[in-house]
Structure formats: structure tokens, C-alpha cells
Design a protein around this nucleic acid. Sequence first.
DNA 1: TCGGAAACCATCAATTGTGCCGGTTTTACC
DNA 2: GGTAAAACCGGCACAATTGATGGTTTCCGA
Lengths: 240, 240
Amino acid sequence: MPPTKTLAEPVTTTDARDVAADAMLSGIQPAAIANLSASWQKRKSAEMQLMLLEAAINCLTAHGYAGLSTQLVAQTAKVSRGTMAHHFPSKMALVAGVVDYTFYRRMERFLDDFRKSRTLGSAAVAEATDMYWKSVQTREYAAYLELAVAARTAPELNEYFQAAAARYDRLWSEEMVKSFPQWKDRWDELQLASDFAMAAHMGLLMSKGPLGDGARLDQVRKLISHVIRLLHSGAIKYPL
Amino acid sequence: MPPTKTLAEPVTTTDARDVAADAMLSGIQPAAIANLSASWQKRKSAEMQLMLLEAAINCLTAHGYAGLSTQLVAQTAKVSRGTMAHHFPSKMALVAGVVDYTFYRRMERFLDDFRKSRTLGSAAVAEATDMYWKSVQTREYAAYLELAVAARTAPELNEYFQAAAARYDRLWSEEMVKSFPQWKDRWDELQLASDFAMAAHMGLLMSKGPLGDGARLDQVRKLISHVIRLLHSGAIKYPL
DNA sequence: TCGGAAACCATCAATTGTGCCGGTTTTACC
DNA sequence: GGTAAAACCGGCACAATTGATGGTTTCCGA
């Protein structure tokens, strides 16, 4: 197969793309999603778990980690609390499930958008940056943010979160190398650009309040995008 | 006087600097701090309030907003819960107090450090950036982060937080203009640099976990600093 | 088909958090 | 010097949350 082509080519069918995404994502795929293709009991269980995880994400984005209670999640998912206890024995088990699920969904959604429209050269960098900013404004990312902050002060959650983040980071790195072969020989620089994009966009999201969601926010967004392009073009040479 | 020396020099008196800082900070100074100079009863009340606010900040940094309880704060401050209720009738009143106090302390601490060592030209920009990064790694900033995230999903807190943030932003802008007169005629650019610094450093702090506190983190930090310098030197022209 | 496992639900006990009250000591003011 | 106010303390009642138990229905596999 032609290794340099697999990327620019819009791929033949959506199946092929899904397969590619699955191959990339299989490393962090939650068990519940895999079990969606099993039969009745396992499938029902998987569907229920996904429903509960979705409900938990909704609760997280709406009321924050502080406002997250098992009662609220069960109520949002419209199931009894006893049922939820059957699938997630403790609150921590639920939160851990949300961590894995959120990382997975975030990666999946970004890859889906990113692979759909594939431009070439430096324009691809700008487009990827825009897409990342878009992905940061989703429900899943809001939940991720809550968990990331909560993990800073909750030792048990932190342990689980860090492990998941490390797996996610490894996969993300692979994807970046695969998506930007022009940068392949300058790996450190690509990583720097990626790290910068993540940090800056996260901070930008959190600055939405003070910056007022208007022109100021947009200027910072453009600056971030500009910097990433400068990094890509070699105008900012590495190491600094 | 030799302007390049002011940095190493421990300044004449602390009074002169404090007065300058007070003039700048008086706009957001909490009542409790002002009342520190009153007599007995009012002073005792102010001291108690400050003690409680400090205890609340400690609880916030140690257990997060989700783990913040009035019991824990009272226990940390080593006073009875009834006493705390006398000074802060409700939990919300306490949190509101922490918001004001945190903003004030953050500004005060940065200005204190910043005014102490004053270099000139583009070096001042780099130094200010380093100082800001340092200020982001403090206890007060951790508490601020918790409140900022919590405000995203707690309407009542959000209202209070936004108002405080707006006041803080106004003061910060004045300070920037005063501190970087070279930039005075390019106000939009200075504001952009300031907004970028805030957002990027906040994101960087939150990325400490995934980035592992090592070389990767440091590279991003250097990149941020570099961008701000480019902005200052005019190498990145505005508007973008 | 039949025994067992899994999905599902209602409820209880224990803990914790918040707000509010009465009561005591200390300070301020006339 | 005496009265009122404020600083300070302990405890109660109410609500909310978590984990765990008992019991019913539905589905899988031998």
C-alpha cells in the first residue's frame, strides 16, 4: 500500500475511515463500546452503561464536579439508583468510567472531523488548529475540564486520570506524526506545537468569561493559530 | 538615581512601595483589610475574617471546590462553626469573600514582586512573563482556579465572580499601561499580549499533569515567553 | 426445559453538610 | 459603672448523599 497516500485520500467508504479510526482508537476504547456488538444481555448492559456515562457527562457540564451526585446521574438517565449501582458499584467507578469515555470520545470526535476534510500543506495546520478550538468547546471537553481540575485535589481520581492521560497522549502523538508527515523529521517541534496548542486553547476556553467572548477572545485565538503556523513554517526555530 | 540598580537595591522604605501599591489596589481592597487599622473590636473582627479567608484558601487548594465545607474551614482556622457563622452568615458569603480576597492578593503579590525588580526595555517583558508564570504557581492562584472553574457551573457564584474579574481586569490594564510605556501607543497590542499571557499560562498550569513537569513543560513556557517578546518587538504585527 | 445469573427496582442505615438558635464572655459607649 | 452590642461557642433539626440489602423479572446456557 502507498503510505503517503492513505492520508490525503478521502478514503473510499465511511467504513474504511471508521475502521482506520477504530484501529487508532482501539487502544483506549472503553469495554462498553466494544460490547455494543454482543448479544442481548451484554449489549443491553453496554447500552445502559453508555447511557449512564452520557448522563454523567451532562451532569458534569451542567453542575460541575462539585454538583455531581449519583442521584442526579440516575435521575438524568431515568433509571433507578439501584440499577446504576449494578453497573457502577461506587461513585468512583462511575467517575473512572467517565474519564475513559471522555478521553475516547474527545479523540474520536476530533479524528472524525479532522479526517473528513483534509487540506494539504500549511493550510492543514491552520485548519487543524481551528478544529481543535472547536473541539474544545464541546460538552465532552467541558466534562474533561471538570475532571482535570478535580483530579488536582482528589488523589484517587488523580491516579486514574493521569494513567488515562498518558495513554491518550501516546495515541495523540502517533496521530500527529501520521497527520503531519512534513513534520516527521522535526518531531520535537511538532510535539511542542501540539503541547502549545493544547495548553493555550485550554487557557483560552477558561478565559472566555473575563475576555467577554468578543473581539479580545478572537484576537488571542488568532494569535495562537498564528504561532502554530510560525512554528510549522520554521519561522520560530527550535530549540528556542 | 540609577534605574538599573533599583532591582538589586532593597528600596528605601517598604512604606513608599506599599503606598504606591495601595493606591493601585484600593479599588479592589476587601473591607477586612482596610479595617485592620481600626481599634480592638473592628480590628479583631478583621483579623478573624482574614484568618477564615486564609483557611478557606488552604481548604480550596487542598481539597478543591467540591471538598470545600464550612466545617472544614472552621476546623482549619481552629474556631467554632458558630463563630464563623457570625462573620460569614452563609457559605456563599464566605466564598464571595474568598473571591474578592483572592483577586486582591494575587494582584498585590504580583505587583510587589514586579515593582521590586524593574529592568528596562524588552528584558522587562521577559522578566514580567517569568514573574507571571511564578505567580501562577502560588496557593492563591490554585484557589482562584478552583473558583473560576466552579463559577462556570454555579450561577450565583458566577455572577459574583464575573463582577470581581471585571474590576480586576480594569486595574490590570491600568497597571500594564503604566508599566510598559513603550507600548502605550499600541494599546491593542499590549492588551493582546496580556490576554495571551494570562490564557496561555493558565493552560500551561493545567497541563502540568499530562506534560509531566519536565522538558516539555519548559519548552512550552519558553515558547510563550518568546511569543510575547515577538509581540513586543513588533515582529508579530497587529492586527493579525 | 430448568437452574442460575444478570438486569432492574425500592428502601434502609450511616454519615455529612448547612442553617439557625440560645447562651456566655468580652468590649464599647454614655 | 452600667447597659447594649458584638465576639464567640455548642448543639439541634432538616436535607442530601453514599453504600448496601432484599426481592422481582428477564434472559442465557447446559
